[in-house]
Design a protein around this nucleic acid. Structure first.
Length: 360
DNA sequence: GTAGGGTTAG
């Protein structure tokens, strides 16, 4: 079966394939050092693979031992073969995947970059991404960003809508892939295209999840579209998605950036009423909002509360407080806070301390 | 490796 017929036919087969791959408990077999994990279903032959035997355990074992002895030259040769015939990349990848061979995300990204540079239209790129998703090719955020950047250069909204529709059909009901694509468009500043994807999701009766909403809140906020961000925040709550600390921090920090300090405090209050616990980023936004609006006493009160709750302050929080204390003429307090900051420099919260998964 | 400090103007 070729790539065109595979992609144009019902996506049901591809979904079965995904399910089979997901059911696989043979994991992360290394093709090469620092290279792609090889995943293979251990039952249910892939529907569109007619030439490969069902991967029984014995064949799996043989495959494992043979893949262990694969040289890096083989991996490089495979990649070069794809790159040298980029127009046929989707077909070549498909046969690769049928043999349970996956490129590393880095190698796959090189294929995407080559496809983006080579083709005038975006359909090749779109096909590559779909084949990869259907086959559970490991994809990192750089892969999605490459696709988003290529689409950013084009005004071909039809191709974008086609891609998102097909990706959603392939990955339903999981939202992970489409959320990552949405994020990638946001990351390269493609606000309109990201919002187009978001509206396409809703048109196709996909239910945006918490990650989708949080991503959209950030995209709107970063674009300075504060009213739309707050509107979307309301819609989110109305549709039964309960905002979490990331949702609130996104709203709070974008309000703070635009100097909407009173609105920021309004949503901080709401956050507490809804039982969402403040973290480092929350306190940062609140302390900065209060300090900038001249309310340094309140800012200091939240600073103490934060420390009492064993949330380590960051350099940002100290700098904000010190600057605003000086502005208000409280030089002594500013000095003592500076000393405090310098005395505990190694204990300050680092750039990744607010990340949610760090605490789980 | 699905989301929230864009080395945040200080």
């Amino acid at each position: 079966m070729n790539i065109q017929s595979m992609l144009s036919s019902s996506s049901r087969h591809l979904r079965c394939y995904i399910a089979a791959a997901a059911a696989s408990d043979l994991r992360a077999l290394t093709f090469l050092p620092n290279s792609a994990p090889i995943r293979r279903p251990n039952h249910n032959p892939p529907p569109f693979s007619t030439s490969v035997d069902p991967p029984l355990f014995s064949t799996a074992t043989r495959f494992i031992s043979s893949s262990r002895t694969s040289s890096s030259l083989e991996q490089e040769a495979t990649l070069n073969q794809i790159l040298s015939s980029i127009q046929n990349a989707a077909t070549l990848l498909e046969s690769l995947y049928e043999n349970r061979l996956f490129l590393s995300p880095k190698s796959f990204k090189r294929v995407l970059v080559a496809a983006a540079a080579e083709s005038n239209d975006l359909s090749l790129l779109s096909q590559l991404l779909q084949v990869a998703i259907a086959s559970s090719q490991p994809l990192n955020s750089a892969c999605f960003l490459t696709v988003a950047k290529a689409f950013a250069k084009s005004d071909d909204c039809a191709e974008l809508l086609r891609l998102t529709k097909q990706v959603m059909e392939l990955t339903s009901p999981s939202m992970t892939v489409i959320n990552r694509i949405l994020f990638a468009f946001g990351e390269c500043g493609e606000t309109e295209k990201a919002l187009l994807i978001f509206s396409q999701m809703k048109t196709l009766d996909f239910v945006p999840d918490l990650y989708t909403h949080n991503t959209v809140l950030e995209i709107l906020g970063y674009a300075g579209r504060i009213d739309e961000m707050l509107g979307q925040f309301g819609v989110m709550k109305e549709t039964g998605i309960v905002p979490d600390v990331v949702s609130y921090n996104t709203v709070l920090n974008n309000l703070r950036k635009l100097g909407k300090f009173d609105v920021c405090m309004f949503y901080f209050k709401e956050m507490g009423e809804n039982g969402v616990e403040a973290d480092l980023l929350t306190y940062t936004a609140v302390i900065e909002s209060l300090g900038r609006s001249g309310n340094v006493e309140e800012a200091l009160r939240f600073f103490d509360e934060m420390k009492a709750r064993h949330i380590r302050p960051s350099l940002y929080v100290y700098r904000s407080l010190i600057t605003n204390l000086k502005k208000m003429g409280k030089v002594d307090l500013a000095l003592s806070l500076t000393e405090e900051m310098n005395s505990c420099d190694s204990e300050l919260a680092g750039p990744t301390d607010f990340k949610r998964n760090k605490r789980l």
